[in-house]
Nucleic acid binder design. Structure first.
Lengths: 261, 261
DNA sequence: ACGGATGTTTCACACAGTGAAACAGAGAAC
DNA sequence: GTTCTCTGTTTCACTGTGTGAAACATCCGT
């Protein structure tokens, strides 16, 4: 790999910053030293620098570092900079209104699905919650919708061990491959309590103008309001229609076979 | 200043990253060179590193860089890590429901107010929009509510030139000082079309256990539904009550004069 | 085919970033 | 009250890393 154009000091800093993106959002110097494997002095100087630049804030009492406001600015302009999100949002609204369920938009980042937008049925609020959060792709309807259209090599790179989230989760490679084949054939992916017991979802992929799958949308709801029949016969076509519309707005033109670029 | 514990290569990288937080969310190498003042080679290596770490993504067609998904993760854990937000959210909901207007939470970052949460009247969606965005403090009700409780030195450091946003904006230092005195006296700040014509708001500050103002909440609405009378006589007390409740939940105990620590 | 953009690569040098180890302080243990 | 231990801060000398200049490669418009 091209390690030629990579600047080590910056990488280290970014890695430290990333530590705050995972489990703990508040960390002490010592924790960072052990988590990063850096020497104490280096870690200290990195932290000082990150603090100086506003990416971290230090609580003077507890001496713990936590993400600063600079990080917020970045995160949200990143979100609003994502064209898909603006394009998809009205469709999510309509989906949610028409079905009475929750509609979401996500994209694939490595082995994880990351939520970009969500419109709930109970309109009130809480909308932000879960935005930007990540779940393993093989347990998610949107995840499977996107995995299905990767090349074999990409898929191989992306998949680690398939840890189950519920008894319904797919943990076997072969079964996953079968499932993904079915997704390709039908054009949508379902999730029947594989992520959370009591939760069903149906998703469809979104293509861009390069005929690449870049995102997915889905409809989620409780098993009490979404039967398997309704999922496949009613919701699946609805989600697929919206996904196609979004894809076309992004410049995707349906055609036969692979496209020459 | 302690430039001893600051690592230059990291600072440069973060500065480059920050460029994407402001105006443009997509930039070309050349743009970054001129915007940052770095040499072409350095800028190039920084960009490569940021890309390698997932903080930037490069569009292979246009050769433009834009924020990557790593940045998203950070932003959202930062948000959810903010204790105030969780504490304040139910209050925002209640405020919005009771008044039928939009309620927001923000904090002060330098001369700018940064939105942390918002609950709209029209419940549906769009909630996320504007979250993390920044506006000049002197044109904002929440900004004035927070500025009013800074020390004179802090205020001096924070205020640059008071650029107007509408004809109603405060642009004069003396007038701002008078306004802030009034805010301190009354305990709330109003905004009568100073940020946007047709928009009124009333805000109150939130204190933490150290008796420091760390945030503010407000209620915003159109001049058509919010008269000046309603703003002051009806909404102001409501907002103040909520602000006090939030403050107390954060450990603030009202008392006389300055507290000994 | 030419000129002027922009992006990529090379190279030699200086100094910026590094780890080890010494220092300081705050609690906890006794 | 004294000692021990754990964490954060500072110093220092070395070397390896990040640096800018300048050469090279590509693309695009005319």
């Amino acid at each position: 790999m091209s390690r030629t154009y990579t600047i080590e000091a910056l990488v280290r800093g970014l890695r430290v910053l990333s530590l705050f993106g995972t489990s703990e959002s508040e960390m002490t110097l010592q924790q960072i030293v052990t988590a990063s494997g850096l020497s104490k002095s280096t870690a200290f100087r990195i932290l000082s620098t990150l603090e100086h630049e506003g990416y971290l804030v230090r609580d003077e009492d507890t001496l713990r570092y936590r993400p600063g406001l600079a990080v917020l600015r970045l995160g949200f302009t990143a979100l609003s900079g994502l064209g898909i999100r603006e394009t998809a949002h009205p469709h999510l609204r309509r989906l949610s209104r028409e079905t009475g369920e929750t509609a979401s938009l996500s994209t694939l980042d490595g082995t994880e699905v990351i939520y970009l937008d969500r419109v709930r049925n109970r309109a009130i609020v809480g909308v932000v919650l879960g935005l930007g959060s990540r779940i393993p792709a093989h347990c998610a309807s949107m995840g499977k919708a996107m995995l299905a259209f990767l090349t074999d090599e990409e898929l191989e790179q992306v998949l680690g061990d398939l840890a189950p989230r519920t008894p319904h989760s797919i943990t076997d490679r072969t079964r996953l491959a079968e499932e993904l084949a079915r997704v390709r054939q039908r054009g949508f992916a379902i999730n029947d309590q594989e992520l959370e017991v009591g939760l069903r979802a149906v998703a469809a992929p979104i293509w861009n103008h390069q005929r690449r799958v870049i995102a997915a949308i889905n409809i989620t709801g409780s098993v009490s309001t979404i039967s398997r029949q309704r999922l496949v016969e009613d919701l699946a076509p609805t989600v697929m229609r919206s996904a196609h519309e979004i894809s076309e707005e992004l410049g995707f033109r349906p055609g036969l076979g692979d496209a020459a670029s």
